[in-house]
Design a protein around this nucleic acid. Sequence first.
DNA 1: CTTGGAGTGTCAACAAGGCTGACTTAATGT
DNA 2: ACATTAAGTCAGCCTTGTTGACACTCCAAG
Lengths: 163, 163
Amino acid sequence: MGEPIGSERLFLTDEQIRQGIEAMYFAYRGLTNEPDQILATLAYGRAHHRAIHFINRAPGTTVTNLLEMLGVTKQSLNRVLRTLIEDGLVESRVGKVDKRERNLYLTEEGVALEARLSDAQRTRMRATYREAGPEAVAGFRRVLEAMMDNELHRKYMSLRETN
Amino acid sequence: MGEPIGSERLFLTDEQIRQGIEAMYFAYRGLTNEPDQILATLAYGRAHHRAIHFINRAPGTTVTNLLEMLGVTKQSLNRVLRTLIEDGLVESRVGKVDKRERNLYLTEEGVALEARLSDAQRTRMRATYREAGPEAVAGFRRVLEAMMDNELHRKYMSLRETN
DNA sequence: CTTGGAGTGTCAACAAGGCTGACTTAATGT
DNA sequence: ACATTAAGTCAGCCTTGTTGACACTCCAAG
């Protein structure tokens, strides 16, 4: 067989692969550190953050839509969503065309919390990008996108079709 | 102020930063997908996976050490560790020099499960790396390492001092 | 116009895996 | 001898995931 097609002679030992996996683990922890601390002071968790993030990203999204993105059950999301609505961070409007649907929006207060949370992450990402340089960033993104399976990649891409 | 020092003219909009954060989220999900499914069939969770991973990585590690790596409480880890020991995946040996310490090792069965879990991840990582190319991989690693804070980076690096 | 099915919300019950606080036991070091 | 450290345990709490069952509203097709 000789050389596998497209291998470009990647000398990747199991050890190197393992290091990549560990790097993902620690980096992900680093990225969620600060938001988690902010959320803890507000009696919210990561689940609330995710909901807020995606509602901010796609204002007017429906519950089913959000369910799809997050990959959790309706009951699980509903619990989180209810507290956010009760606390006045999220507004749920009855759909205009289909009145069964609820369109979700962040309130002013919701936008404020979203900004606070993502500011922490963006500051870190900016510092990270500055330290690693533009080429590294391009590679980083390329690898991450290749790491998603088709379904996740579809979800990921769907977020930038409208914007 | 003009040009920020060290910026190297990185045109990074909030939108691009946000995409990076989202990419991390979806990629991490992709990476944990398969192991989670395997673990679910065995009545184990991600916590068990993490313990197994780090014991495999540093055989003979102490409980305190593991606690440090994982960043959880003793009680939380103990619950997981106990089931792994009861199920014969992990062996806990009294320390030779300090008999208060317990040195943790994977049994044959433990090694087998570790291999099964990391095989799934390594296969994905290999495919990912092949698709993205060597330069992308280097960038990926550089960005992830920059993304960790000092403490996490120390833990991350400690894993390759011995190997 | 009725009826099936889709979108939503909710109740109940359960499990994993975090947490805190309090405590025991054994071994170590001062 | 005594304080400290490593480990383990008990009890209780929270968040966030899960199933299953059910009600309500509304749309669309027969």
